[in-house]
Simulated scan of single mutants.
Amino acid sequence: MEQRKPSESSVIMTELVLPNDTNLFGNLMGGRLMYWMDIAAALSAGKHCNAPVVTASVDNISFESPIKLGNVVHIEARVTRSFNTSMEVHLKVWGEDLTHQYKYKSNEAYYTFVALDPNRKPRTVPALTPETEDEQKLFEGALRRRQLRLILGGKMKPNDATELKALFQVQ
């Protein structure tokens, strides 16, 4: 199976915040944004492995700035690392106020997807080869984030998380 580059999984999704997307304060509802993020992340993971994918986990999503009614949402997604059958996708979300001509960061998150074969069973995905320094940092951190997800999900014992433990060991 040939290796892929993060740029090959890049997706930019754009949405306009309409009244039905907002809460009582005129801000984009968090659930709506998470829905759009899940779609963008699934498109990115699907591009990486050329197969159907399902969401396995969503990491903490912190909202830095609200996105207002009438603003544009830009969601940037790309695979940061692939494992055996799963892929981590990093998302950055930007709001854009077209009237005042400025763009601002709203939030970012990591989603994990699993690729499926025709029988809806997990299938192997291509390896990822980072090209830039930023891609390399995300790639290296992905193993620690994965171990944390597995511990929190009860699928790994903390003592088995060697990458995480290495962060706290004094040399």
Score class of each variant (00 low, 15 high):
Arg32His: 09
Ala56Arg: 08
Val53Ile: 13
Thr55Trp: 05
His48Leu: 12
Val79Gln: 00
Asp59Ile: 11
Cys49Ile: 01
Leu43Gln: 09
Ser44Ala: 09
Gly26Glu: 04
Ala42Asp: 05
Met29Thr: 08
Ala56Gln: 13
Asn27Ala: 10
Ser62Gln: 15
Ser86Lys: 06
Gly46Leu: 12
Leu69Arg: 07
Arg78Asp: 07
Glu64Asp: 11
Gly46Asp: 11
Ala40Gln: 05
Ser57Tyr: 00
Gly26Asp: 03
Gly31Glu: 04
Asn50Met: 12
Phe63His: 09
Gly70Asn: 03
Ile67Asp: 00
Gly26Cys: 05
Ala40Leu: 12
Ser65Gln: 12
Asn50Thr: 15
Cys49Tyr: 00
Asp59Leu: 10
Ala45Leu: 06
Arg78Gln: 12
Ser86Met: 11
Asn71Ser: 15
Ser65Asp: 13
Ala77Ile: 04
Ser65Met: 12
Glu76Thr: 11
Cys49Phe: 03
Ser57Phe: 03
Ile61Phe: 10
Lys47Ala: 03
Ser57Gln: 03
Val79Ile: 07
Ala56Phe: 11
Thr80Val: 03
Phe63Leu: 13
Gly31Tyr: 06
Val79Pro: 00
Ile61Tyr: 08
Asn71Arg: 07
Pro66Ala: 11
Lys47Tyr: 06
Val72Glu: 04
Ala56Asp: 11
Ser82Lys: 04
Arg81Gly: 03
Leu28Ile: 06
Leu69Met: 14
Gly31Asn: 06
Lys68Ala: 13
His48Cys: 07
Lys68Ser: 15
Lys68Phe: 15
Ala40Arg: 02
Thr80Asn: 02
Val58Pro: 01
Arg81Met: 07
Trp36Lys: 01
Asn27Lys: 13
Lys47Cys: 03
Ala40Ile: 07
Val58Ser: 10
Asn50Ile: 14
Phe83Gln: 07
Ala77Gln: 02
Gly70Met: 04
Trp36Gly: 01
Leu28His: 02
Lys47Asn: 06
Leu43Val: 10
Arg78Thr: 05
Glu64Tyr: 14
Val72Trp: 04
Pro52Leu: 11
Ala41Glu: 01
Tyr35Ile: 14
Ser44Glu: 00
Thr80Cys: 01
Leu33Glu: 00
Tyr35Phe: 14
Asn71Tyr: 12
Thr80Arg: 00
Asp38His: 04
Ala77Met: 05
Ser44Arg: 01
Gly26Lys: 02
Asn50Asp: 12
His74Ala: 14
Ala42Ser: 09
Ala41Gln: 01
Gly31Pro: 02
Pro52Gly: 12
Met34Ile: 13
